[in-house]
């Protein structure tokens, strides 16, 4: 089975958006373009507000991804776990689509007897190890995130450690929002080395607004830009995931 590149957005935020487009709609828009949106909600101990929680869940659902709410201290372990889960889930979706083509009906892995699921899981595992992965990390740097930023930085370095252990290629890009000028600033352009983020990661937060919707729109566009730039440079028949999904 040939798969293209796995495109994932990892949104790290602590709560409610308050400016611009509806982030849930923007997540759905990203999904339409073959980009999965995953959300990690970073909370202070025992201040989980229901509205923020609901938004986090809804964005991930609309974006076809995974969400997880954590306390700041558990961030590192969570970021790598969510990314891993998200990859598996997306790949599983791809495999399900293939299955439906083969079986000609609305069958998913779960409709198969347990014995046959095993072989499919092996394929998913294998793909997870080897597939080319593009992760766009979208970090909320609104005022309330201030204390959490050092932990976010560590969690991202930890993520690179996990993903670099795979044999497949990775590229990372980091956007922060709100941006100094626009809705989101590009902190790190597409690179295989997420570690290079260390020198540029912000220590200060930027303003009180939280334009999560517009930031998600920028994030999805960032994949497209990268792709078109690539196709200008090379003529190889790179197949992206949206075609196979």
């Amino acid at each position: 089975m040939k798969t293209g590149t796995l495109k994932q957005v990892l949104l790290i935020t602590d709560g409610c958006s308050n400016q611009g487009e509806d982030p849930i709609a923007m997540a759905a828009l990203a999904k339409e373009q073959g980009v999965t949106v995953n959300v990690i909600g970073v909370m202070e101990q025992d201040v989980i507000d229901d509205q923020g929680l609901k938004e986090i869940e809804s964005i991930a659902m609309a974006g076809g991804g995974v969400s997880q709410v954590v306390y700041t201290q558990q961030l590192s372990q969570t970021v790598q776990m969510v990314t891993r889960k998200a990859m598996t889930q997306t790949l599983q979706g791809v495999v399900n689509k293939e299955l439906q083509q083969i079986l000609g009906r609305a069958k998913t892995v779960e409709d198969l007897p347990p014995e046959q699921r095993g072989e499919i899981m092996e394929v998913v595992d294998e793909l997870g190890e080897t597939v080319e992965l593009e992760v766009l990390i979208l970090v909320d740097t609104s005022a309330s995130m201030k204390h959490k930023l050092p932990t976010v930085k560590e969690a991202l370095l930890d993520l690179s450690l996990s993903l670099n252990a795979r044999s497949g290629e990775n590229s990372f890009s980091v956007l922060v929002f709100p941006g100094k000028r626009g809705e989101a600033d590009k902190l790190l352009d597409w690179t295989p080395k997420l570690e290079s983020l260390t020198s540029v990661f912000p220590k200060l937060t930027t303003g009180g607004i939280t334009p999560t919707g517009p930031a998600l729109r920028e994030a999805a566009a960032s994949f497209r830009q990268k792709r078109s730039l690539r196709s200008l440079l090379s003529s190889d028949d790179e197949q992206s995931f949206e075609e196979s999904v």
Binding site: E57, A60, G65, S67, Q68, V69, Q89
Partner: peptide, 8 residues
């Protein structure tokens, strides 16, 4: 979609 809270 998977959803996990610390409690759940």
């Amino acid at each position: 979609m998977m959803m996990n809270n610390p409690s759940k």
